[in-house]
Amino acid sequence: MAPTLEISEPKAAADPMLPVPCRIRRVRNETADTFTWELQPADGPARFAFQPGQFNMLYVFGVGEVPISISGDPADTQSFRHTTRAVGVVTRAMRQLRAGDVLGVRGPFGSAWPIEAAAGRDVVIVAGGIGLAPLRPALCRLLAQRRRYGRIVLLYGARTPQDILFPHELERWRGKFDLEVQVTVDRSADTWRGNVGVVTTLIPCAPFEPANAVALVCGPEVMMRYTVRELQRRGIAADRIHVSMERNMKCAIGFCGHCQYGPAFICKDGPIFPFDRVESIFGKAEV
């Protein structure tokens, strides 16, 4: 029998499905299909607090709503950022919006990268394609408290040199003595002199101490599958590898049912999971 629940009086809480109008302050094109917005609540700047790895639901007037990770620096108190790839109906409509336009925002939602728990350890960040966007706030925070961590390694794979996200920032980060940044592309024309190959090829020689490392992984599911395999081969324990999962999502508060991944709701239990929590279904087809 289902245990009964006490039905309480409705509280005057904010409607969780009602967006807050936010204004685009700046649009920056990152690659041919990817752009970054800087946003502020429409009725004036207000502190938007979030944890690295969390996402917002962005609503385009009359078109629809999509979950998009927050890509800004959590220390930024003036605005928040989203980096989006235009691939679907809503994200293509988003691409048509300009500075000054207003959209609806709900959030932030979901679990965060374990930045606090990683203190005292090496941190390995492995990103594929647009997967770098939700990891950017994590790296910003790690760098802001650099002394609390051991080695920090960022391994990034893009499809082609033209698809590399945040190239100037990557170059700036690569110039730092206390950060190891390696970039690779799946394929390139003759002009590219950097690494060619999938991002997993960078893992075997990356400088970190597996017994004392935490890994943060975000990218396409197939990329994460091989990345986790390589990280485990290096000796990082499953509960110290964190993956960011993606599924269809309509509400972000556990009511619509779309984002179920086995027993988990990606919107509220994820999107970031310690790998041991999803290991039994990870890589199974069509779950």
């Binding site: 289902a2 245990p3 009964t4 629940l5 039905i7 309480s8 009086e9 409705p10 509280k11 809480a13 409607d15 969780p16 508060i253 556990g254 009511f255 509220k268």
Partner: peptide, 24 residues
């Protein structure tokens, strides 16, 4: 079944306000 849907819409940290009002 009603007790089960109560747990879905009222049992978590976020409550469905429409459901709560009808149910109550």
């Amino acid at each position: 079944a009603i007790a089960i849907q109560d747990r879905v819409f009222l049992g978590g940290p976020v409550v469905d306000p429409g459901y709560q009002s009808r149910r109550q």
